[in-house]
């Protein structure tokens, strides 16, 4: 059995982190995981990002290399260091300003970096092919098959036009 990284007690929580085919494991006991707030002990917090960020990003592979901790968002003035300390972003623009380290984080948390799901109705019209595909998904999910067939035809048309032959 693995021992807790912090106190040496038998570990019951195991975090496995795979990034760029490098696997690393962290073992914790429940008490330390709670103390470090990696698992929640109060309602609301599904899972504390701050604890996790500090734990998984403590290594050499730190994204701080790409985003200096002092770098600040020109819109909301949030510094990357503050995000690391608090686990909350300050505004929409932060997703662009801190894109590089966030991509690493999203890959770790979600094992994905691209949204694939609902798109606001207002946005779909401006998004061309991707928007149409999102509308198609929505139509199928809602069992609006007539609309779905129409959308499928429009997507085929567009794809045909985009593909060089």
């Amino acid at each position: 059995m693995n021992a807790c990284k912090f106190c040496g007690q038998p570990a019951t929580i195991h975090l496995t982190d795979i990034l760029q085919k490098q696997k690393s494991e962290t073992h914790l006991c429940e008490a330390c995981a709670k103390a470090k707030q990696i698992i929640p002990d109060k309602p609301g917090a599904h899972f504390d990002l701050q604890g996790l960020v500090q734990l998984v990003m403590g290594g050499h592979d730190s994204p701080d290399a790409v985003a200096p901790v002092a770098q600040a968002c020109p819109a909301c003035k949030l510094k990357y260091a503050e995000f690391r300390a608090e686990g909350r972003l300050g505004c929409a623009r932060d997703y662009e300003v801190f894109a590089a380290p966030l991509l690493t984080l999203l890959e770790r948390v979600h094992r994905a970096t691209d949204h694939c799901g609902k798109i606001p109705v207002g946005q779909r019209r401006r998004m061309g092919l991707r928007g149409l595909k999102a509308e198609l998904d929505a139509a199928i999910a809602a069992e609006r098959y007539e609309e779905a067939a129409e959308l499928r035809d429009r997507i085929r048309q567009k794809e045909g036009a985009d593909e060089p032959r």
Binding site: F47, R88, L89, V109, H115
Partner: peptide
């Protein structure tokens, strides 16, 4: 709600949230 309140939405990341653990959908 979206019809009256334009949301913060990103083509790549989806619906933007204060905590990146909620981003996307």
């Amino acid at each position: 709600l979206e019809a009256r309140l334009p949301y913060a939405f990103h083509e790549r990341f989806g619906y933007l949230t204060a905590c990146p653990t909620n981003v996307g959908t």
